[in-house]
Design a protein around this nucleic acid. Structure first.
Length: 400
RNA sequence: GGGGAGAUGCCGGAGUGGUCAAACGGGGCGGACUGUAAAUCCGUUGGCUUUGCCUACGAAGGUUCGAAUCCUUCUCUCCCCA
């Protein structure tokens, strides 16, 4: 049991109900009944990001200790939107989007968790079945003052920005999930404290044993300051191509490396600290970090390749070995050539002609290494040329 | 129910009849620099067949030679009173 407590230290910054946890673990050891460990994800985008792998990894640790992960796909809660940390209401998603995201989330979660040994649930199963009466009973369990304790709500209230009633219901929905699945433990990020505590409250009122709340650290995003989130756009998706992932990790500030080694690469803290304390060039350390993370979500080979490509393309400004192909139809070249604008647009590196024009004018477009200066001049191509747009967008031109 | 304030580009936020595709900041993009896709600096940031045209300042109408700016109605948000 002490071994379990020790293993569970990873990725926990705050623990509500430590005594409960010990008691539950002890009982589990004697009775052989695994603990039900709940983690909820709201499918609100295609990518699951690396920050989310922290609680997911923690769930994996529980799983490896013989406990039962209860992974809840928050398809009902996603449609409401978790207001945590938000200063404005989140746009509501459609049923179709949520279903689509839910599917891709599961695929991605499988990279960390063994889904065969999990209980997978969708909270629409019970939340949508609640009905109006059920909803009223649920919301009657908490007060407005209680909800306003949460500082994001309090802040918005003070600032005079809109708080919709359904946002106030969100924590109750999440708490109700805990009641339904009879969670022994619920995992979440540090910012989820309030929501997880509501789970305890509702369980208590339902006559259940209260769940232990384990809050994990929030992995900082690429900017090294804010927590990684989709809305902040500072995230690394766990199913991103290896090269993208590698490059993004290379760009995190040096100070964020320790956190990343521990939380994203799952290196034991002492080891990571020693590694960083040993000095070493930050570039090399980060290269190692990036390789570890890429290897975790792809494989070792992809990690080595990503590292080599990065060195080549970014550090040495050379041309990568592999790049997308841009097939040009003969008609594009019919009038003696093709403009750089058209080329960039066809390659998909500019959303409009105006943007392409700007890129050329700003010196961001090269053909076989030579800067293209005139956006409209007709370029004659023989095929096989390499188009470069910006620092790292390439395309090999092929003629039909 | 009554009274007041407000809705501007990806976001925040100026602008109260022409010189506004709209200050400024953030974000994005490009360039320089760098171990880095960081920091910093410079530039750029609605679309198009680009010395011009089109679309845009919550929505729809109207006044005017001309409207983000004035009027009417509508929609939404916030505050105060009940």
């Amino acid at each position: 049991m002490e071994r379990q407590v020790e293993a569970l230290r990873w990725g926990t910054v705050e623990l509500i109900g430590e005594d409960d946890l010990r008691r539950k673990l002890r009982r589990s050891v004697t009775t052989g009944v695994p603990l039900r460990v709940k983690l909820g994800v709201d499918p609100t985008a295609h990518d699951l990001h690396v920050g989310f792998t922290v609680p997911l990894t923690k769930l994996r640790i529980f799983q490896d200790l013989g406990h039962l992960p209860v992974l809840i796909i928050g398809d009902a809660t996603a449609m409401v939107g978790d207001p945590t940390g938000k200063n404005k209401a989140r746009p509501q998603l459609t049923r179709e989007m949520v279903d689509d995201y839910a599917r891709s989330y599961l695929e991605q979660a499988a990279l960390v968790l063994d889904l065969e040994r999990c209980e997978l649930r969708r909270n629409s199963e019970w939340l949508h079945a609640l009905g109006f009466t059920g909803l009223i009973e649920l919301v009657a369990k908490a007060t407005v003052a209680q909800m306003l304790v949460r500082d994001d709500f309090a802040k918005r209230y003070a600032e005079g920005t809109a708080i919709y009633l359904h946002e106030l219901v969100y924590p109750l929905m999440q708490g109700h999930d805990s009641v339904v699945v009879r969670a022994d433990v619920e995992l979440g990020g540090q910012d989820q404290l309030f929501n997880l505590l509501i789970g305890r409250q509702l369980q208590r009122e339902a006559g259940q044993e209260e769940q232990v709340c384990m809050m994990g650290p929030l992995l900082v995003g690429l900017d090294g300051k804010k927590k990684m989130s989709k809305s902040a756009g500072n995230y690394v998706g766990i199913s991103e191509p290896a090269g993208e992932m590698f490059g993004k990790i290379m760009s995190i500030p040096d100070e964020a490396m320790l956190d990343w080694f521990v939380l994203a690469a799952r290196m034991p803290k002492a080891e990571a600290e020693a590694l960083i304390a040993a000095g070493g060039h930050p570039r090399e350390l980060k290269d190692q970090l990036a390789r570890l993370v890429v290897a975790r979500f792809h494989d070792g080979r992809a990690a080595e390749e990503a590292s080599a490509t990065f060195r080549r393309v970014i550090s040495n400004k050379e041309t990568p070995e592999e790049m997308p192909e841009l097939r040009l139809a003969a008609t594009e070249l019919a009038e003696g050539g093709i403009s750089a604008i058209r080329l960039v647009v066809l390659a998909g590196y500019a959303a409009s002609n105006g943007e392409a024009r700007r890129l050329v004018q700003q010196g961001g477009v090269r053909l076989d290494g030579e800067p293209v200066t005139d956006p409209t001049a007709a370029l004659t191509l023989a095929g096989g040329e390499v188009l470069k747009v910006g620092k790292r967008n390439f395309a090999r031109i092929l003629l039909d």
